[in-house]
């Protein structure tokens, strides 16, 4: 929680508390995805996987990875007080995130040869991508807020914990996808 009226030392102390809370939250949230991965391998084993479109999968994966790069650029820019670079990089991250969402929900979901009610393959595919997409969406909203507040000049080299939080969250969502992508697209033979 930012307050411009407190001293820098106070801000650092508060930020370190917030940082700890953030990481706990991320560990906790990660367990949901771990549970989904367990469910996926429990139900389908390592021999089978849902019938998915490899091209779309690869494309969205690359986009998300690239977005993480720009997220990192944005955070670095914030530490150097470079507001313009911060805003630009954040904006690019947002756009890439939105493209990712369109790729998954708008394309992959529509062309998938099965519905959510078609057996475990469908159930797992829609649930796993859906949970992840929901996290990307919240990440995008968070970044939009950061962008808005960044334009107002709320973040400075010494005081930009929210930017750090947004970045950590974004990378976390990215890491989750790095685990989900092979689980859904690469391991095992496709079944309907």
């Amino acid at each position: 929680m930012t307050t411009q009226t407190t001293s820098l030392a106070d801000y650092r102390r508060k930020a370190s508390i917030n940082r700890f809370g953030l990481w706990l939250f991320i560990i906790s949230d990660f367990l949901v995805f771990a549970g989904l991965l367990v469910a996926r391998f429990y139900l389908m084993g390592a021999q089978t996987r849902p019938e998915v479109n490899q091209l779309v999968g690869l494309a969205v994966t690359i986009i998300l990875l690239i977005s993480s790069f720009f997220m990192n650029r944005a955070e670095v820019a914030a530490t150097y007080n470079d507001r313009k670079a911060f805003l630009n990089n954040t904006l690019i991250t947002i756009i890439l995130g939105v493209i990712f969402l369109i790729g998954v929900v708008g394309v992959e979901w529509q062309i998938a040869p099965f519905k959510a009610s078609d057996g475990v393959a469908g159930s797992l595919f829609y649930t796993m991508t859906g949970f992840h997409a929901f996290h990307v969406l919240t990440g995008v909203i968070f970044l939009i807020i950061l962008h808005r507040n960044g334009r107002k000049g709320l973040y400075t080299a010494g005081r930009h914990f929210p930017v750090e939080a947004g970045a950590v969250y974004w990378h976390f969502v990215d890491v989750v996808w790095i685990l989900f992508y092979p689980a859904l697209y690469l391991i095992g033979e496709a079944v309907l």
């Binding site: 469910a39 139900l43 475990v120």
Partner: peptide
């Protein structure tokens, strides 16, 4: 949504 994680007939 009629998903089938725990329904044997759905796998």
């Amino acid at each position: 949504f009629g998903m089938g994680f725990f329904t044997p007939s759905e796998g």
